[in-house]
Amino acid sequence: MSKHQYAMVMDLNKCLGCQTCTIACKKLWTDRDGTGYMYWNNVETRPGLGYPRQWDRIGGGWKDGLLQPSPLPTMEDYGYAWEYDYEQRLFEGKRKPVMPSPEPKSGVNWDEDVGGMNGEENYFFYVPRICNHCTYPACLEACPRKAIYKREEDGIVVIDQDRCQGYRYCIKACPYKKIYFNEVTGKSEKCIFCYPRLEKGEVNACAAQCPGRLRFVGLLDDPESPVHKLVLVHKIALPLFPEKGTQPNVFYVPPFNPPKRDNYGKSILEDARLPLDYLVYLFGPDVKNVITRLEAELKRAQAGGRSEVLQLLIGRDAETRYRIRPQLVQIQG
């Protein structure tokens, strides 16, 4: 068990699906050889296929204390990179349309804004995903090389690139499919929670660049941190697929607002815009209690009262949203 644990909370009510976090991460960490298909941070439309597609349905994680490895996702599940034949159009003077090749069949953010139907209404929301830096990482357990370790000082899960031999048991074991294999180096890679930034007191790049200001970062065990308050005090943030047994340290404020059209004033749980079954699928049965708590906060604010929870979730400035404690981690860690 780590002495401290960095955690992130993402308020899905605020996510615009703009992918700025995705690009911030990509430019910083995965703009190298072999990393083209890697998205340590991706934003997917839910309901939807996800990236790699169907990652939530193929397995991974723990059951009765045993690892439940899935098959390895294939490049078809990630989607092959395609190029456009600009050459013939722009330089050879051929009037053929500029078509992508190979024919795109899947890819990151492939089914953006498709969503699902709730009765006759279309609905969707966005779920940004990074490595969950789990308390009980299935990837760590699966690695016969002991190349994966959880940093004792801050709970960040990283892959030692010197020890990794590219066996990919970690990818099979991760229920969130947040480890990627680099065939050029022959090693696996994953989100490092921007630990080099945190060590300098800077927040993660995905959080720093987020125009929606939906990310909160801090130590889960620091009573002053926003993540501690949102997860442990107010209890309004939940991990994704808690039944996978890894105990993620990335949490989500579930989407609950706005209400359905012509439904103003009614309880969101009574006639939800988003099918509650789908939210239960993603966040477990406790999501209904969380929405009840959020709805009560909303009602209090609407009645002219003050809601500390909503003030925190608005997150007006960086001091509210982030509490990075490099000194605490270094001195006490």
Binding site: G36, Y37, M75
Partner: peptide, 23 residues
């Protein structure tokens, strides 16, 4: 045969060597 990785640093190149398969 793995694709040849250019000697120049990846950040100086527009195109990077892709991972062709992961499995």
């Amino acid at each position: 045969t793995l694709p040849e990785v250019p000697k120049t640093p990846p950040e100086t190149r527009f195109l990077k060597v892709p991972t062709e398969a992961d499995d």
